[in-house]
Design a protein around this nucleic acid. Structure first.
Lengths: 366, 366
DNA sequence: AAACATTGTGAGTCCGGTCTCAAGCTTAGA
DNA sequence: TCTAAGCTTGAGACCGGACTCACAATGTTT
């Protein structure tokens, strides 16, 4: 160590150039690997850069190339392993193409989401992946498009926004799963979601979040196929925190026509539902059948292990990154986004309706 | 909408200045709120900025102020709810002080961590919070210090690096918890961690990760207090993925002197341990007692609910952000970091040793 | 040997802001 | 009335790179 005052002002091309006894332009060329540079100069510059431990200022570089080799990701709840896994898929794919990834968590708050998008645009990311909060507001997303930078939506579509969307169609798997439950004798099947809504659910209501809308549509189709009517009174939205889910669960299981099966729309809701069922002293699946979205690790630990609907989240993340990067590298070219399908993994939390005569067994699906 | 070609080049101060019929300098002053500007000019400039929908280029601003009002966070595994919650604490505290937060996930890989730190330094964040991977390498962290930007370590201390550390001392809670187990008759208490290590654990070994070292030290103290010797043969490191944890668990529970209690050092390990115990057909706590670090939501769902050691993770995140921001705003001033303590929450997975005569009950701790 | 192509080089501009400097104008105290 | 201080203002340097341009020094072709 020659001198310990390695602080404040950092080394610039000009410094390197001076040390290598060449002009700033030549040093920049040697360092940046463009233009024509003689072997002699290149060596001297690189040696000087090395000995001064020169690091290019990415900000300055971004400023006049317009490219930052960085993609921004905005998610609602990074505590949710669903997004954690997606994030891994995004990071891995991006890294493979030489892109850095920066993430901002919004806590499912539309204002925070707007801020996050603004911050990332201000930092001049090359593109954005957003898992949007369900909200009618979309001004911030339109601003992304207006800025000319590509945007890929994750999980949820936003009406009136013509951008790539990476999501799994939930209609079919929901229909099949519901059919499974109906086949086991269930007619009172409840659905609980954290989706915020001004009004309680009613049949035919316009649900703003595509994945939730699809789940409900699938359920509705299955009931229709079976010749039953869809019990829309058992659909509960606005399930905010875990406590409120417990309350909703208990409410659903009481009364003259209680639910005999409950479907949780995500891992957070699932925790509350199972807790609610347990505190009422009921057992799964003898008293209540249970099904949830997202194949989380802990679902295998309960007794019985829980039946889940699994999505290829990692692959979806990777696909989102791939689509975005293609848009960045070849603007205007429409990117091919693979189709993703979710599957029902029946582990044992779906049983026959209590008191039903027949013995329920899994139907063999082709 | 006047014209739809709102793309490519964005509006700059020069454009605003031209529209307001003043010089660039005056426009910049009015916009930036510095220097002296007459009321007349200010109004004209702000109006022009509004009508052109001017947005300052943060990159350019950062470039010559040196401040980005952004803090960078580097964590190993964002899928771990431990870090997810910490992230919320950090974000909330930072937002309250007007700082943006960007996160990079490293997947517990030292090379990715080095890259992440480089990227964030290159983006000129004002400071960094890093939850470092356990590794002897610390060059990248030293580089942060050399750059003059403040660094706060989360969870783990790094030897020879004189920076603020936000962590919970695990020694005492580990000692107490182990004493609890010993009091219940356990002597064969195993400990499983994902910590990477070249060699198997031996008593007195220098463990590179502070939190793990503290947990082991606490166990050792408890055994010493009780007049027993610490069964270091039951300490297993390098528990990589869930599968390997299952294998390790089964290994520990077989043989002539099996473990009667297992302590999992984090949520990931815990999943594997519980699965391993279940696949062997053993029950908690009748056959094996179980204790884990981190109070995750799903630990209340198993039967029995699992006993955990809980840390105030959200508060720790907030404290880390607070300390960092203070360092950024008042360089040189040492920041006060509160003490954090972890607590044992005994839910029911700790029981008496199988075959022991006495009936175990929780000791009343003062 | 003249005409042309290729390579190496430095000077200087640009990106979009911040900030210094000196000049112009107003106003107050001597 | 004159000067000193105070406010407003524009010109331009600067941050640290990327890149254009003009020109010199070689090499190649006929």
């Amino acid at each position: 160590m020659t001198h310990s005052s390695a602080r404040r002002r950092d080394v610039t091309v000009a410094d390197v150039a001076k040390a290598a006894l060449v002009s700033k332009a030549q040093a920049a060329r040697a360092l940046g690997g463009y233009g024509a540079v003689s072997e002699d100069v290149r060596e001297r510059v690189l040696a000087a850069a090395e000995s001064l431990s020169y690091r290019p200022n990415e900000l300055a570089r971004t400023m006049n190339t317009g490219k930052s080799h960085t993609i921004g990701v905005v998610v609602g709840d990074i505590e949710n392993p669903h997004f954690g896994l997606a994030m891994r898929g995004i990071s891995d794919r991006a890294k493979a193409s030489g892109f850095d990834v920066i993430l901002i968590n919004t806590g499912e708050d539309i204002r925070a989401e707007t801020d996050a998008v603004r911050v990332l645009l201000d930092k001049r990311v090359d593109g954005l992946i957003v898992a949007p909060v369900s909200s009618p507001e979309k001004g911030h997303l339109e601003r992304v498009c207006a800025s000319g930078r590509p945007l890929v939506l994750f999980d949820r579509k936003v009406d009136g926004l013509d951008v790539d969307v990476v999501a799994t169609d939930m209609t079919e798997v929901s229909r099949k799963s519901t059919a499974e439950l109906i086949h086991a004798g269930h007619e009172r099947i409840a659905f609980i979601s954290t989706l915020k809504s001004q009004e309680p659910f009613w049949n035919g209501m316009d649900v703003s979040s595509t994945p939730i809308a699809e789940r409900l549509k699938g359920m509705s189709l299955a009931f229709h196929d079976a010749g039953h009517s869809f019990p829309s009174d058992l659909v509960r939205l606005n399930a905010g925190n875990s406590d409120s889910v417990v309350g909703i669960t208990q409410d659903l299981l009481r009364g003259p026509a209680p639910a005999t099966a409950i479907v949780a729309s995500d891992g957070l809701v699932a925790l509350g539902v199972v807790e609610g069922i347990q505190t009422m002293g009921l057992s799964i699946p003898q008293d209540v059948s249970f099904l949830m979205y997202d194949d989380l690790a802990w679902t295998r630990l309960t007794n019985p292990p829980l039946s889940v609907i699994s999505q290829p989240v990692y692959d979806m993340g990777a696909a989102a990154a791939a689509a975005l990067i293609q848009r960045i590298q070849r603007p205007g070219v429409k990117s091919e986004i693979p189709e993703f399908t979710a599957t029902l993994i029946n582990r044992g939390s779906i049983g026959a309706v209590r008191g039903a005569a027949s013995c329920y067994s899994l139907s063999e699906s082709p």
